[in-house]
């Protein structure tokens, strides 16, 4: 009762990094609230394979659902697992990744339980709340903090009356930290048939093609990122040239992705991946708040922009006023000249 739950996403038998990041955050929230952390794993042939990927993050109880039909993920069976489990366990908080699966599952569960759900949170905190109109005071609510309205404002959302308080969080936003490799948590293997009626297995996955991520933006020490100001797909060639010299990864802003300059999985920001590299070179990125939310914790930020008043310049350590075509070749040239 009243514990913090994390839904763990599983590809085959591998627990997603975003879920482990949320377990880390969930442990902290549970400590703050003085409650337990519980995890849910649902898949096929996962028993004996996922426990060691989950418990070390400080999970007190792991709910395991292992049955044919639970992998690949489809909406209804996983919804029934969460809804029926939550009716028994009455969690106060439920976290899941803001992934394709989390964003398919979370809304269904929240609708079935009439609980509030906040998507794509960039921070989660615990705090009090006063409903001045009703004259009610609440302690220990989950503050679900996210940029809103195209990233121009940041909103703090609370769910005063409804449980669980549900939130999704993007990959990379929370830090992953093993609490104790030998953490002793209880594993409960549930009878799936008691949670999922046969009629739930209505969507058939006919064909499935998943590739490991082509880039390693999350782990890259140096990132060269391009925005709308790069101007074209060809323009990104210069970014790859510089990245090759610096052993860096190439990322992009949403504007560049939307304009078709580069692939969707390269997007950095609130609705993409969050990164914390040692060096972040922003090329032609004006710096919408949603983008900044995904890279502001970078060590050193270098902004290359023809607009000296680009918002990103206010958080940059170095501001180079000039176009990408002009500046990047010079960076390559003088990097080569000086690194020898």
């Amino acid at each position: 009762m009243n514990n913090v739950f994390v839904y763990c996403e599983i590809e085959g038998t591998k627990v997603a990094e975003v879920s482990q990041e949320l377990l880390t955050k969930g442990r902290k929230l549970a400590n703050q609230l003085g409650v337990s952390l519980e995890a849910i794993c649902a898949g096929y042939n996962i028993k004996g394979k996922v426990e060691s990927q989950v418990l070390p993050f400080g999970v007190d109880k792991l709910h395991l659902f292992d049955a044919e039909g639970l992998f690949p993920y489809t909406s209804k069976p996983h919804t029934s697992i969460l809804v029926n489990l939550f009716k028994q366990e009455k969690p106060q908080i439920c976290l899941m990744g803001a992934t394709v699966i989390g964003r398919d599952l979370g809304p269904r569960v929240s609708s079935a339980l009439t609980s509030g759900l906040t998507a794509d949170c960039t921070a989660l905190e615990i705090g009090p709340h006063d409903d001045k109109k009703a004259g009610v005071h609440y302690d220990n609510l989950l503050y679900q903090i996210r940029p809103a309205f195209g990233g121009n404002i940041v909103a703090t959302i609370v769910n005063p009356e409804h449980r669980p308080q549900m939130a999704t969080v993007r990959s990379g936003v929370m830090k992953m930290e093993v609490l104790d490799p030998n953490y002793k948590g209880e594993v409960i293997v549930h009878d799936v048939a008691k949670f999922v009626p046969d009629t739930d297995y209505v969507v058939k996955v006919i064909e499935r093609h998943v590739e490991a991520a082509k880039n390693n933006l999350k782990g890259a020490p140096i990132i060269v990122a391009g925005g709308y100001g790069v101007g074209s797909r060809e323009g990104f060639g210069l970014l790859y040239d510089l990245a090759k010299e610096l052993h860096a990864e190439v990322g992009a802003s949403r504007a560049a992705v939307d304009a078709g300059f580069c692939e969707h999985d390269m997007q950095i920001g609130q609705t993409g991946v969050t990164v914390r590299p040692k060096v972040y070179i922003a090329c032609g990125i004006s710096g919408a708040i949603q983008h900044i939310a995904g890279m502001k914790e970078s060590g050193i930020i270098i902004s290359v922009n023809s607009d000296p008043n680009a918002p990103i310049n206010t958080i940059a350590d170095y501001v180079i006023t000039g176009t990408v075509e002009e500046v990047l070749p010079k960076m390559i040239k003088y990097y080569k000249a000086n690194s020898k």
Partner: peptide
């Protein structure tokens, strides 16, 4: 609506002391 907006803020990022450079060699 179970979710309530507790507060809305304009985000102000901690401005850094930045070095300004030109595109000169």
């Amino acid at each position: 609506s179970p979710t309530k907006v507790k507060s809305v803020e304009n985000i102000v990022f901690q401005a850094k002391e930045s070095k300004t450079l030109t595109a000169s060699d």
